[in-house]
């Protein structure tokens, strides 16, 4: 393999970072604008039932203290300035600074998503190749139909059925949490056991997409000239399938891998809340239920940044793997 084109990669990352700044600005502005247009009142959210009987003067003083008497554009500017120094405000529902919530939980969400994604890529590729080998065969039809059914099934429903089957009926895996309830410490073995169900369900929810795209890519490649050429040279079926068809069939899939980040985040939101997994996605749901605006705003921004990073990753991968693509052109 030729040496990596570091210069071109750095230039692409730089260009994307420049593009990401206005996107994040617009998204955070939108978040503040939506909140300002909504009936949501930060004072009531902060004070809870304590401010129900309070007089107007107390409410106004509270409003000034919280800094919510100013127009939302000013608050947006102040939030941005704080965010640059790492101060994202205070989460009311978790009673922690928002930055600390994210720091503590990000690692668990990343672990869950990474494991699920890896499993989905490997299993999806295997199933896709299996189906593409003989299009229209029973294997193909079974795999394809199953993929469509799984694609249509809501991930939280699959998660609940998996809890019933594996945790309650068979009793082989824990139903929820990160560790056993009795345990005080977080050990790798326990986390691994508790990870199986959530990561498995998340992988299953991402699987149909990979399977169908790999199947499509490989089946298309099998019908092209290079494969016919390889067969004509007398190469074995395995070499043709894995060496020729899979390699060119995987290319379109690779470009789209990075664009799966939104779906992965969506899946994680639902899976984490079913399995009480202590990640940021579950925190998002808690924040939304309690209308914890600082936490919600930070998590929305974080998710957007993750999506942009995913797009960048896809472009980098594509440029590195496909020699016809120039990183400088992207």
């Amino acid at each position: 393999m030729s040496p990596l084109p570091w210069g071109a990669m750095a230039r692409l990352v730089g260009r994307r970072a420049l593009f990401a700044v206005p996107v994040l600005l617009v998204v955070t502005f939108g978040v503040f604008a939506i909140a300002a247009a909504s009936p949501f009142d930060p004072v009531k959210a902060y004070g809870g039932t304590a401010v129900l009987g309070a007089d107007q003067e107390t409410l106004d003083r509270l409003r000034t203290n919280l800094g919510v008497d100013e127009p939302f554009v000013v608050r947006w500017g102040r939030w941005l300035a704080g965010a640059l120094t790492g101060d994202l405000g205070q989460s009311a529902v978790l009673r922690q600074p928002v930055a600390q919530v994210i720091g503590e939980r990000l690692v668990w969400s990343t672990l869950l998503c990474a494991v699920a994604f890896a499993v989905a890529v490997v299993a999806g590729t295997l199933l896709g190749v299996l189906a593409a080998r003989r299009p229209g065969s029973w294997t193909d039809r079974t795999v394809t139909s199953l993929a469509y059914v799984l694609e249509a099934a809501p991930v939280f429903w699959i998660a609940l059925l998996a809890v019933w089957l594996f945790a309650l009926h068979l009793g082989v895996l824990p139903a929820a949490g990160l560790t056993d309830t009795a345990s005080e410490q977080v050990t790798a073995g326990q986390v691994a056991r508790h990870l199986v169900l959530p990561a498995g369900v998340l992988a299953v929810s991402q699987l149909p997409w990979f399977t169908l795209y790999v199947r499509q890519g490989v089946a298309d490649a099998l019908a092209e000239e290079p494969v016919r050429g390889a067969r004509a040279r007398g190469l074995g079926e395995r070499t043709v399938l894995l060496g020729h068809a899979l390699r060119s069939g995987l290319l379109p899939v690779l470009t789209l891998i990075g664009s799966r980040v939104p779906e992965l985040i969506t899946g994680a939101l639902l899976v984490e809340s079913v399995f009480s997994w202590p990640g940021i996605a579950a925190a998002t749901v808690e924040a939304a239920t309690a209308v914890d605006f600082p936490l919600l705003a930070a998590l929305t921004t974080l998710a957007t940044a993750a999506v942009l990073a995913g797009n960048l990753l896809a472009d980098l991968l594509y440029g590195l793997i496909d020699p016809r693509v120039k990183l400088d052109d992207m």
């Binding site: 206005p22 996107v23 617009v26 998204v27 939108g30 980040v261 939104p262 779906e263 985040i265 969506t266 939101l269 639902l270 998002t284 998590l299 929305t300 998710a303 957007t304 999506v307 942009l308 797009n311």
Partner: peptide, 9 residues
């Protein structure tokens, strides 16, 4: 820009 925020979120 709007599509770079995950839909469900």
């Amino acid at each position: 820009t709007i599509s770079s925020v995950p839909h469900l979120l």
